[in-house]
Design a protein around this nucleic acid. Structure first.
Lengths: 360, 360
DNA sequence: GTAATTTGATGAAACGCTTTATCGCTACCT
DNA sequence: AGGTAGCGATAAAGCGTTTCATCAAATTAC
């Protein structure tokens, strides 16, 4: 059927070894081919329309030039949460750039990994794991089989490779922004209690307060679990506090949570941002659809995907890398939910302009 | 390194053939294994932790249980156009369902297909092509190599397999909706002149007019090329027509085009929907962000991906299929841009409720 | 009771490639 | 001259699987 290396060799009057070395530039072998035979071989290959068979190559080299991307079990590419899509976008770009191919997996709800993939899982040279649960089957699989992997959004455990966004800085950016607008009583709606990002964002929040010599008031820090409902009721409680204890600004750990907060504020007869300012996190598309539009912390999601691929392929190919834990810088997308009536002091450490997306 | 079939065979006191047949249920071979040896083999495999090597299998069978998904050259997963992401979502789901694996490609701008993928493209059993340009390199590749492929959104050429949404019906839905609201002079902003969808939507538009015995007026059909700018100026022209010739409704071939139209209408001092009603197409996320929110034709994008996979795998496995050209039904998402002051007569042929997405 | 079929099992030949070990040859130092 | 290095090239040994051709034994058919 397909034209093989042997036929090329025969036509060119050379050995298969020579053909292999010429056409698919051999890595570790020490065979040499003269320029004369090389051109004969190339001509023959051209004439026969030879294409090397990557499967056969893979079988002998043990490498496939393919990396996997494992998306979290949550319905991968949903309309309202572009996170996975953006990661994928960055991963694709970098994968092509580095001449690899990409296999897409998703650990769907209710499917056993080994049942669905494990058995006929084409060999990949490594995997990018997006928000892997620490008990994840595939994580174990990689660990035991010695398959290189890098996790996106996960606690940077020594011995592993991770890519995260700078959540501490993001929270600081948000909090400092509120402080610079004159707020002194800033509440924080916490995310999922055992998420890595939650502790990071809390740390950023407290650090920004400390830097401004503002007191940390634990009554202003509420559990909300990235949840609309929880944020809504937490916010209701906050704004019913006596005036001296009441926050004038809320830093939510999520755009969704921010929406919940804004709703609660509006329903109490107050105005955003006039009475209470709100900052969100993630800068998802509906940050621009809320009323007023939401100021939110943006992370370079696609870049995180690309970084993960770079890290992974470096590990696969044994390239030296400076760090095994990448932390991507974040920025603040300033919109309307914090008000513009106060003087806005630009961030001195500004990295990447705080971009502001508008409707088309 | 890895445990092979031969070691299992030795431990079980059987031949590699028996092991192969037992563990990876052979398709076309006629070898038989008794239950006694089968259980011995299974035990041995279990004990050694044997996993079959799909690459080796692939080499001999010529099949890989992998299908490819080729996304169009436009920046695949962009934030504001969830089309690719949604297709991918459907493709993934169905791929897993049918026990295949998924390889993700994208023919990025400026990259030569054979250079970037062709050489070390792991063998796939078939490809799903999303909106392939007819001159597409990969299309040629598949055609000559005899690789099965199915195209999503492409003219259903005989001898190929395609998945489209019912654009004729979509345009009829939109147009009829406007007719039922009492409009008699309905303009249509055409899409890209050589896009298949454009002619389909135009056909639906004229058909709906004919069914209502309304005259077809070619001055009301304007070129707009799915473009905001073009739609904007086309609409300006339309609303400057003398009153008797002026449209009271506009059916745009795109949400973006609809936005352009609405802008032009507003800037002329008129109101949407009071003076001119507008319908969009695609029902993308910003249909809910426009002011007023846009009534738009929704197509089941993820379903299209899933259908494509079903078609493809049927072709790969030689299963009989009823049709090689799937046409997915569409629905109308009714919002504000056509007004609610008139009686809304529900669509009698209603298939899949006309869903209406709201902000969270 | 013999022939024909079925059952259970096996060795070995691919599949298309990479790579090791080997070899002849020329050229270059001592 | 002898030894060594380097170049150009090759035959052949795998990589881990599937499957073909074969075969002995057991079962069934006639």
């Amino acid at each position: 059927m397909a034209v093989t290396i042997r036929e090329v060799a025969r036509l060119a009057g050379a050995s298969t070894a020579a053909v292999s070395a010429t056409l698919n530039g051999s890595r570790g072998s020490n065979i040499r081919v003269g320029t004369a035979t090389q051109s004969r071989i190339k001509a023959a290959a051209q004439q026969l329309g030879y294409r090397s068979n990557p499967v056969a190559r893979s079988l002998v080299t043990g490498r496939s030039q393919v990396i996997g991307l494992m998306l979290p079990y949550v319905e991968g590419f949903s309309d309202d949460n572009p996170f996975c899509a953006l990661v994928t976008s960055g991963v694709i770009r970098e994968t092509i750039q580095l001449h690899y191919n990409l296999m897409l997996y998703t650990s769907m709800q209710g499917t056993n990994f080994h049942h669905s993939h494990g058995d006929h899982l084409p060999k990949v040279d490594g995997v990018v794991l997006v928000m892997p649960p620490s008990s994840s089957e595939i994580l174990l699989h990689c660990e035991t089989k010695g398959i290189p992997y890098v996790s996106i959004i996960r606690e940077p455990i020594p011995g592993t490779m991770t890519v995260n966004s700078d959540d501490v800085d993001g929270a600081m950016l948000a909090t400092r922004h509120l402080i610079e607008l004159g707020h002194t009583r800033i509440a924080h709606l916490l995310g999922d209690p055992d998420a890595y990002t939650t502790t990071q964002r809390l740390a950023g929040y407290t650090r920004a307060l400390a830097a401004a010599k503002l007191p940390f008031d634990e009554t202003l820090v509420r559990q909300a679990s990235f949840d609309w409902r929880a944020s809504y009721s937490a916010t209701r409680n906050l704004i019913e506090l006596p005036k001296s204890k009441r926050p004038t600004a809320i830093f939510a750990s999520n755009d969704l949570a921010a929406e919940g907060a804004m709703r609660a504020i509006r329903e109490s007869g107050r105005q955003v941002p006039h009475d209470v300012a709100v900052v969100g996190y993630d800068d998802t598309w509906f940050a621009t659809t809320t009323q007023p539009q939401l100021t939110s912390v943006r992370m370079p999601i696609a870049e995180m995907g690309a970084s993960a691929v770079r890290l992974l392929i470096a590990a696969i190919e044994g390239t030296e890398i400076s760090t095994r834990h990448v932390v991507e810088p974040v920025s603040l997308s300033i919109r309307e939910s914090c008000g513009t009536n106060h003087q806005q002091i630009p961030d001195p450490r500004q990295r990447g302009s705080a971009s502001c997306t508008h409707n088309p």
